[in-house]
């Protein structure tokens, strides 16, 4: 039953990649939900998170990472990149979006595209720094190897044809609690309710005494931090990063958010799992060169035929 094993393998790969995409997609969908902005800088923020993680690893020393020290390094990177991306996203909102709160949505979108270019070029500059981890800064644009701190051993046994590795475990162990925590924040806490109120009617929210600028800032902070977490697990999963990785990952996540119904968080996760599966199945059963065409074909079709997304129908009734 080799084909079953092959299929299961694509399923595992697709779902794990989908969960990484989901963390990024939540950042898109949260920001869209609250200020109706497609934050095109979000993918590139994710890229900078990966560069920070690699830089930190270089500073900690590129020795032989194994066992407890490797896991400690993973935790340090997760916290650092999440904090960094959260703070950076908050700062981008302050500088590039907040002054445009009452401007047209188009101005806001153009500002986001501008922010994206700035971040990409920061990544290019960063990758050219003369550091060992960046291969001494010889080629700024070259992809960088990300050390394999998490082993690739097969947890299902060496003879199994299906690979389920500690990398997959890492993905689920990081993403699932984050999503549960986020759901708790959004549904149960005062901040979360204020976020939903601001998204549903910003003027009414202000009339209730909600400082909507602070709530929006908190949304960028949380969304950015999730992107930071995603950047570290992505890097550990794929073991290579580049200054352009934010574009692809960002487009995947954006497509996932649109597919699920932009503004809806469960939708973003569902959409991301679908995109992850479509990618792995297309890579395996068609050819990799078709994959982008299929993913972005889905984006176009959704925008044309079901712009409210799969789970977005009941979410879209702005009063």
């Amino acid at each position: 039953m080799e084909w079953v094993d092959f299929f299961l393998q694509q399923l595992i790969t697709g779902l794990s990649n989908g969960m990484i995409i989901a963390l990024i997609a939540i950042g898109y969908t949260m920001v869209y939900g609250i200020i109706e902005l497609i934050n095109f800088a979000h993918g590139d923020l994710f890229m900078l998170g990966a560069f920070l993680a690699l830089t930190l690893l270089g500073m900690l020393g590129l020795g032989d990472w194994s066992g407890a020290s490797a896991w400690a390094a993973v935790v340090i990177m997760l916290i650092a990149s999440a904090g960094f991306c959260g703070a950076l996203n908050w700062g981008i909102d302050r500088l590039a979006y907040k002054p445009l709160r009452s401007a047209s949505k188009l101005s806001l979108l153009v500002s986001a595209i501008g922010a994206s270019f700035i971040l990409v070029n920061l990544g290019l500059f960063w990758g050219g720094l003369p550091m060992d981890v960046f291969a001494g800064g010889v080629a700024a644009a070259a992809p960088k190897d990300f050390p394999a701190l998490v082993p690739n051993t097969n947890l299902l046994g060496e003879e199994s044809l299906v690979q389920f590795t500690p990398k997959d475990v890492l993905v689920w162990v990081v993403t699932v609690p984050l999503m549960i925590g986020l759901t708790w924040i959004v549904t149960r806490t005062r901040l979360g309710k204020a976020m939903r109120a601001t998204a549903q009617n910003p003027v009414a929210a202000r009339l209730m005494g909600i400082d909507t600028d602070r709530v929006i800032g908190a949304t960028f902070l949380i969304g950015g931090a999730l992107g930071g977490f995603a950047s570290v697990i992505y890097s550990l999963y794929n073991n290579t990063i580049s200054f352009q990785m934010g574009y692809r990952a960002g487009m995947d996540a954006f497509t996932a958010a649109v597919l699920g119904g932009i503004g809806s968080m469960p939708g973003a996760v569902a959409g991301a799992l679908v995109i992850g599966l479509v990618r792995s199945m297309s890579d395996a059963y068609l050819e990799t060169r078709w994959t982008n065409t299929i993913v972005f074909g889905i984006l176009v079709l959704i925008l044309i035929f079901r712009p409210s997304g799969l789970l977005g129908s009941r979410v879209k009734e702005k009063v």
Partner: peptide, 19 residues
């Protein structure tokens, strides 16, 4: 009216007491 349509009645009232 501008109630928050996708918050419950109770949550709407809580938002009134936000401060």
């Amino acid at each position: 009216r501008r109630v928050f349509p996708r918050l419950t009645v109770r949550e709407n009232l809580e938002m009134g007491a936000y401060l």
